[in-house]
Nucleic acid binder design. Sequence first.
DNA 1: CGGGATCCCAAGCGATACTG
DNA 2: CAGTATCGCTTGGGATCCCG
Lengths: 250, 250
Amino acid sequence: MGTRVARGFGQYSGVARAVERVGERWALLIVRDLLAGARRYSDLKQSLPRIPTNILSDRLKELQEAGVVRRVPIVRGGYELTEAGLALAPAVLALERWGWSALGEPAEGEVVSADALAVSLHAAFRPDAAASLPPTEYVLHVAGTSLSAMVAGGGLDVVPIGPGALPQPHRRTATAAPADVLELVVEPGAFRDLLTDASAATSLRAAAADIGMTVLAGGPGLVDRFRRTFRIEPVAPDDAAGAAGEASVA
Amino acid sequence: MGTRVARGFGQYSGVARAVERVGERWALLIVRDLLAGARRYSDLKQSLPRIPTNILSDRLKELQEAGVVRRVPIVRGGYELTEAGLALAPAVLALERWGWSALGEPAEGEVVSADALAVSLHAAFRPDAAASLPPTEYVLHVAGTSLSAMVAGGGLDVVPIGPGALPQPHRRTATAAPADVLELVVEPGAFRDLLTDASAATSLRAAAADIGMTVLAGGPGLVDRFRRTFRIEPVAPDDAAGAAGEASVA
DNA sequence: CGGGATCCCAAGCGATACTG
DNA sequence: CAGTATCGCTTGGGATCCCG
């Protein structure tokens, strides 16, 4: 049939409703990619290489029925988030932050897409830290994909670089070119270390080459600026022998 | 087999990892209930009436492997969240808030559990608003379950009422009895209206009986205080004819 | 009796092939 | 390019059964 009557959980609850709408396999990854901007069917298929085409088709239909996604009027095969879909941003970014704590090294065959990277940057972005820093452009090359993150005055704007399909109405308002530009080539694992603040805190620039990162452009100190602008707090590793009394939401 | 090798998405990404760990059907609802406190197998089975017992068993095993859940040392059949599991709170609460916007009326046969209710209150809680209000206890009776929410100085503590299993180490520190106590009996739909701030803003107390709510105890004004303390912003309904240019995370 | 494990069937998922 | 159709395989659902 394709479109399927969502199997409920029999609960009158917020998360139950949320999971009914965006909890099917692949659905939240589609939402994540659309959070980076409107995309066409083939764009999604490319940034989600392992999704079967029928599943992508089914999910897009279901997400439309759920009021999360709608078609872009003019563009053939174009999809974008509705208001309700955009409202998922806090939840998706929270999951993104949580997922980073478990992100280990990339497994065999795992890819990094530009959209995923863009959302990671949004999840890691610290507006208040950025507000007190001079405008900066960060150009990142990670695992074959490239993007540019403009940071100015507490705001963040990420756009993919390259033969970008679907010209976005990116409101990168013609601000004067930023004084500082940092351009990095990083391997996925090194990118995680960059954001996660893990081990190499101070010796990072020195050991840059060792951990899979090379600075193409940008003076010293810009890497530190990046790390103050983008950071995800790691979660304490699971303690098998934790003391008692642990419960309840913070 | 039971425990299953998690099917990956082939993505090196935070949300992909998150969904691999807690994205299976029912998993996030289990986490939600455990966010309300440690629970036993039978407690979970009761608050999730429609979960097949084998699925509950499988999920608990998987969540343990994922480092999200661990067994409670002494209690037989007791489960609780690990540090990593607790770190899911922001994501679960964000999903809870989003889900409320789509929560409509309860469908036939849908239940409301005390744990779900407790998480809803946490999701709706406004610490800054609460900080400027006098300490208050809210006793809610919704669809057969009851709970007490203590609000004092920007803090919230929710405990179920009744023959509560698994005596929680609830750090409801022996604060002096709150000056004000509001006790309500609300139907599920009315509870949603209470939180969602929807239509009946001012005429709420007058129309209390009409919308399925009765005040058992508490002076006038306490309902308004409740609504200032607990509120979830609704999401604009999906506009099928929205203008162009909508994209990117906020 | 609470805490699970086993079974079977239906539904969802994945891979491939195919069409407007 | 943007999907639809088909076909095995895997998972979830529901009932039953087992074990301490």
